[in-house]
Design a protein around this nucleic acid. Structure first.
Length: 548
RNA sequence: GGCCCGAUGGUCAAGCGGUCAAGACAUCGCCCUUUCACGGCGGUAACCCGGGUUCGAUUCCCGGUCGGGUCACCA
């Protein structure tokens, strides 16, 4: 029995050979310099920030070069598969405008000519490639039990072997006679398939990473598992096969993969294929008690993108922040072109930071405030309404009862050259405008020293006219102020502070406190106007009752 | 522990042998202003350490320190 016969015994069902697939999935017809890349998650249904970041970067580079961005589902570890996981990932990413040119579009459907895009549906392809290797004696079945593997490791550690793992003289099934291997397989003994490594770890090879630049790594000498006991390929092998056949030009992934780069390079070399370009992204970090660590989906709630749905963060804000982390010159460009589309900025690999950036929520909020401030009131209303409907139904009732009123509330100090920037997330809205809803405004005052009842009594009896426009209202307040010892003019007051109890702003403060129970608010006139004379007077009466 | 990567103000970061070492967030002060916010102006604040190379190193090289990653039939 020779290797070819062994391969045939192991994979009797494959219909085609490697060349067949290479021809079937030929080179893509794309413009010069077009980047083909992918997002390749396990179908856990869960997306964390790091993954969103990587997919954002991938899509951005593909799109700005006229290339292709596709989705591939890496479900070879069946333990990680969640029901409906694919759908959840697609739907969540879509909310961020991350959409795919190819790949699954739902749990059961897909588009594109380079599929299937779900790894468990590609088994025959992997079989074909493994078979090819076995037939050439470049891969072999290994019958080691987990206990044996553990024993090897223990021995290596005892002997201070610099390289731990299944290699060289420790690779006990590497030279097993094909006939013996065949016998054990036929008798039903479980096995994995390992690559017969020809690497020499004392030799280093340098490699150019698109982000990290020059990387020096030792050759791989481990006989790594390429096909697991369940017949599915390992990540390494699936990456090699899929990215070859799907004609990926750039593999953009987390830099935790750098350590396995020697394996991947070796796989391509074994087949004589040109490896794709690699761009390894540093992880998002978090500081905690003075030390830094990778943002963790277990420890850090802000790591899960679902967190942002729950607080009502616009997805654009997150994208803007990720763009800022990705290429820091993006921020300068965006400040010069506020409201511009992210796609209009040209990102560069060599501007991506090599070290992991600390994920800064304060910065994210700042960016989000800027984004929300540029929104039209109606748009803010529409978007926040669907958020509130789900996360704050009680407030949503009031909010949606009179849409025009709520939009007007949101429009105070909005849609002007220098809009307010006090809303970062839709969850902030209630705290900003609650006092405009009578149902929420039950004698909320806490401090009876702010309002001078005599002054406001005079004001409401003799000055206040709900029909006044903004300028007239202001003029009347100013004219009224001196009657009670307040300056009608701020500069005048500052010149002679001793001659006044304060300036007319204090009277505005009283009115503000009356109608909002707060000492600060957006434009007072707008609030009074929106409330209307009747409700303002009602609050005045309620206040007097309360202050008794 | 072996191997790999990284290191500029509190944070994100420009820089790519000669700069008074940009900018943004945060912070502080002032101005504008009916309050707040916005905006404007200004302040505090940084090249991890030690050796080289060089007329000259934040920048290039070598050590060290610190930080991160990785050593699975998980991806």
């Amino acid at each position: 029995m020779d290797y070819a016969q062994l391969a045939q015994l192991m994979f009797p069902h494959t219909e085609h050979d490697v060349d067949y697939y290479l021809n079937k999935y030929g080179p893509r017809d794309l413009p010069e310099g077009a980047i083909v890349t992918r997002y390749a998650p396990s179908p856990t249904g869960f997306i964390h920030m790091g993954a969103l970041y990587a997919s954002f970067v991938s899509r951005t580079f593909a799109k700005q070069t006229g290339g292709v961005f596709y989705l591939r589902i890496e479900d070879t570890d069946t333990k990680r598969t969640v029901d409906n996981g694919i759908q959840l990932i697609i739907d969540d990413l879509k909310k961020f405008g991350v959409v795919f040119d190819e790949g699954p579009v739902s749990q059961t459907e897909a588009v594109g000519d380079y599929g299937p895009y779900i790894q468990t549906q590609r088994k025959e392809i992997y079989d074909t490639f493994v078979k090819h290797l076995v037939a050439q004696g470049k891969a072999y079945p290994c019958f080691c039990t987990p206990e044996e593997l553990e024993a090897i490791r223990a021995q290596q550690e005892r002997e201070k072997e610099p390289i731990i793992g299944y290699w060289g003289k420790y690779a006990k099934y590497r030279e097993l006679d094909p006939a013996e291997a065949a016998r054990r397989i036929e008798s039903g003994e479980p096995y994995v398939v390992r690559l017969k490594s020809f690497g020499d770890p004392t030799r280093k090879e340098t490699f150019r990473d698109e982000i990290k630049g020059k990387l020096t790594v030792p050759e791989n000498c481990l006989d790594i598992v390429i096909m697991k006991g369940d017949g599915f390929p390992t990540y390494h092998f699936a990456h090699f096969v899929d990215d070859t056949l799907m004609r990926t030009t750039h593999v953009i992934r987390g830099d935790e993969w750098i350590a396995s780069l020697p394996i991947h390079l070796q796989l391509f070399r074994t087949f004589g294929f040109q490896p794709p370009k690699y761009a390894h992204i540093a992880p998002l970090m978090k500081t905690e008690d003075g030390s830094t660590r990778k943002l963790s989906k277990r420890k850090d709630p802000e790591c899960a993108i679902s967190y942002y749905f729950e607080i009502g963060m616009p997805t654009e804000s997150i994208l803007l922040y990720l763009a800022t982390i990705c290429n820091s010159d993006f921020e300068d460009w965006f400040m010069k072109n506020p409201g511009a589309k992210i796609e209009d900025f040209t990102f560069r690999f060599n501007h991506i930071g090599k070290a992991g950036a600390i994920y800064d929520l304060a910065k994210l909020y700042n960016i989000s405030k800027g984004f929300v401030s540029r929104m039209k009131a109606q748009e803010l209303y529409d978007r926040s309404a669907s958020f509130l409907k789900e996360y704050d139904p009680a407030f949503y009732e009031l909010y949606s009862r009179d849409e025009a009123y709520s939009v007007a509330a949101l429009n105070i100090d909005r849609e002007k050259p220098k809009p307010r920037k006090d809303i970062a997330v839709y969850g902030d809205i209630k705290a900003q405008i609650w006092y405009l809803y009578d149902e929420l405004f039950h004698t909320p005052w806490q401090d009876n020293s702010i309002i001078d009842t005599a002054i406001l009594s005079d004001y409401f009896a003799n000055v206040y006219d709900p029909a006044d426009d903004s300028a007239a209202w202001m003029e009347k307040v100013k004219a009224f102020a001196p009657k009670h010892g307040y300056a009608a003019d701020v500069k005048e007051y500052k010149k002679n502070p001793d001659q006044y109890r304060g300036h007319f702003g204090a009277i505005c403060g009283m009115l503000r406190y009356l109608v909002t129970s707060q000492t600060n608010s957006p434009d007072l006139y707008s609030i009074l106007h929106l409330l209307g004379g009747q409700r303002v007077l009602a609050r005045w009466n309620a206040y007097q009752e309360w202050a008794k």
